[in-house]
């Protein structure tokens, strides 16, 4: 789009929004989550995030440009987004070689084997996470607790004892969950930081409210029904379920992915509802501790069917008999 004289079919009106600008703005939206993750989990988290992002960007440059010039490494920013999201959904104590493998699986198998940006069916970061979770389940479910302020002032790197995540049975107050002072993946614990990113994305018009609303809404309904049947119905239980695990992070940064979510508006709502139902059913009734990854991957595969059956009516169209 740098040429001033463009020969081509319409539309000829160009907006300022490009793939590049959208992707870098998503990176900005991910900044609060990343900073919160680093503050909460220390240098380990920083290393995981940097490794995932850099590996993803280098591999993308190699696949697309076959060289490592700075311009090709920066590319259109989509590899940076996928890599950063991948880092944020891994536990802070993940060994770095595992992060490299995860990023390679995500970018090579999840994205470029399907034809690269715009063609991938599944969210690359989630493909990578499901892959490493299947291969090394122990490393992927070893959490360590957040650092406190005194840890930062005394030593920079600390050997933190492993502890249970909220979904693994740890008890936490709602305020702790909101700020993110719980064990969990790097980016998913702090609801506050996620909401900051969400507000930025909504204000800039990069995400549609339908999929996240369907997702969080259906998850809340299932949580309500479950707690009602269990006889301990309370609003705090629902809030707890929504803030535990990766649900909020996924609602803002993963099911809003433009490539792997439906094109139609009704479709997006259905997509969100489907993801929410599967996530909550896996969480509450099945043995896997967290269902976000599987729910979204499953619904990613449904996207072509959803798009097919939710094509909106053309204005003035009459139902033919």
């Amino acid at each position: 789009m740098t040429d001033k004289f463009v020969v081509g079919p319409s539309p000829h009106v160009l907006g300022p929004k490009t793939v590049k600008s959208v992707m870098w703005e998503v990176v900005i939206a991910l900044a609060p989550v990343s900073i919160a993750g680093i503050l909460l989990f220390g240098l380990d988290a920083l290393l995981v995030l940097v490794t995932a992002t850099v590996t993803a960007m280098i591999l993308e440059a190699l696949v697309l440009h076959r060289n490592l010039k700075p311009a090709s490494i920066l590319g259109d920013g989509s590899a940076a987004v996928s890599g950063l999201i991948l880092g944020l959904i891994l536990p802070p104590s993940t060994p770095l070689w595992m992060v490299v493998i995860a990023a390679a699986v995500g970018i090579l198998l999840g994205k470029h084997a399907f034809g690269g940006l715009g063609n991938n069916i599944f969210n690359p970061a989630l493909v990578a996470r499901a892959f490493v979770f299947m291969s090394w389940p122990v490393a992927m479910t070893t959490w360590h607790g957040p650092l406190s302020l005194s840890d930062w002032t005394t030593r920079v790197s600390v050997d933190v004892a492993s502890s249970a995540s909220p979904l693994g049975g740890a008890q936490h107050g709602l305020m702790e969950m909101f700020l993110g002072q719980t064990a969990g993946s790097i980016g998913e614990t702090s609801a506050l930081a996620i909401l900051l990113g969400a507000i930025f994305l909504i204000v800039r018009g990069h995400i549609d409210w339908r999929a996240p609303l369907g997702y969080v809404g259906s998850a809340a309904v299932v949580a309500a029904i479950y707690s009602f049947l269990g006889g301990d119905f309370a609003l705090t239980t629902i809030a707890w379920q929504l803030m535990a695990g990766g649900l909020l992070f996924a609602a803002v940064f993963m099911i809003t992915d433009m490539v792997t979510s439906p094109v139609t508006k009704t479709g997006r709502l259905l997509f969100g509802i489907g993801c929410g139902l599967i996530t909550m059913v896996i969480r509450l009734y099945l043995s896997a501790p967290e269902g976000v990854t599987y729910g979204i991957l499953f619904m990613n595969a449904m996207v072509p069917l959803i798009d097919r059956y939710t094509v909106p009516k053309v204005f003035g169209e009459v139902k033919s008999r």
Partner: peptide, 9 residues
């Protein structure tokens, strides 16, 4: 990848 998604069930 679809089988990976089903592995959660």
């Amino acid at each position: 990848i679809l089988a990976l998604a089903f592995s959660g069930f």
